[in-house]
Amino acid sequence: MKLLTLNFLTCAIKTCKTNASSFPLHPRDAELEIQEADVNLPFLKNILPRLMWEELRTICKELGLPDLPPTPPTPTDLISGGNSTDTTEGRTQAEQEPSQTAKDLHRVLLETCIQEGKLVCGCCGHEYAVKEGVANFLLPGHLV
């Protein structure tokens, strides 16, 4: 499971939904894997405003990955040679080259995957098992 998905997953239990600590889910005993993928710059730009940067930093720290910068990158940071004059005029999306920041972000969000381990809700402590990269979000009847 990609870290991007983990940045959007919350606890599935109804009583946790209203509680702020149900997001993010904390990875435990996680085995990581890198799955190579092509950099998709328009997608990164699209998803950037929706990321919860603080939570992403927490998750990276818990996984023992290198620290992320304290502030999220801006859309112009993602384009190499990102002068404002360049990006607004004359260049279509296809011509823009991803910068090192974009490549790093892509590495963290889309290539780093949790293969085995557990996701723990910060509110109720429910553990969601992850096996072969698939998290089990099925709940027993009394918790729905």
Partner: peptide, 13 residues
């Protein structure tokens, strides 16, 4: 990404 979940139990995002 894949998840094992029941749509009738909600969408955990």
């Amino acid at each position: 990404d894949l998840l094992l979940a029941d749509a009738g139990q909600g969408v955990p995002f």
